[in-house]
């Protein structure tokens, strides 16, 4: 019989689908009987997805990109000079 503590310690593997079928069944059975663990699991899953969804739209500011290229060119020029 799984305790809530056992459930929490397996939560990361469960959310990443890295548990074997037997453990998965046990964890899901525990959740079906324990509303608190169900909430923790559901809100942790949402925590991950809210970050993923938000960050996907992120892009690099164009001024930062330009300065990176300039720094790269500058380093190359300095290197060529030394050679």
């Amino acid at each position: 019989m799984l305790t809530c503590k056992d459930f929490i310690s397996e939560l990361t593997d469960y959310l990443d689908e890295r548990t074997d079928a037997d453990l998965r069944t046990k964890l899901e059975k525990h959740m079906a009987e324990c509303p608190n663990c169900w909430v923790v699991c559901d809100t942790t899953r949402k925590t991950i997805s809210v970050y993923k969804d938000h960050e996907k739209a992120c892009c690099i500011p164009s001024d930062v990109q330009t300065r990176l290229l300039l720094a790269f060119e500058k380093m190359r020029a300095a290197k060529t000079k030394v050679v």
């Binding site: 929490i8 939560l11 990361t12 959310l15 608190n36 923790v40 809100t43 925590t47 991950i48 809210v50």
Partner: peptide, 27 residues
């Protein structure tokens, strides 16, 4: 990763919890 996810979950619950749902301690 487990600890980071749980800590973030705790913090975000303050903003995202369903209105009317009370938070309480356990474990």
């Amino acid at each position: 990763l487990l600890r980071a996810r749980l800590q973030l979950r705790e913090k975000l619950t303050r903003f995202f919890k369903r209105k009317g749902d009370d938070a309480f301690a356990y474990m």
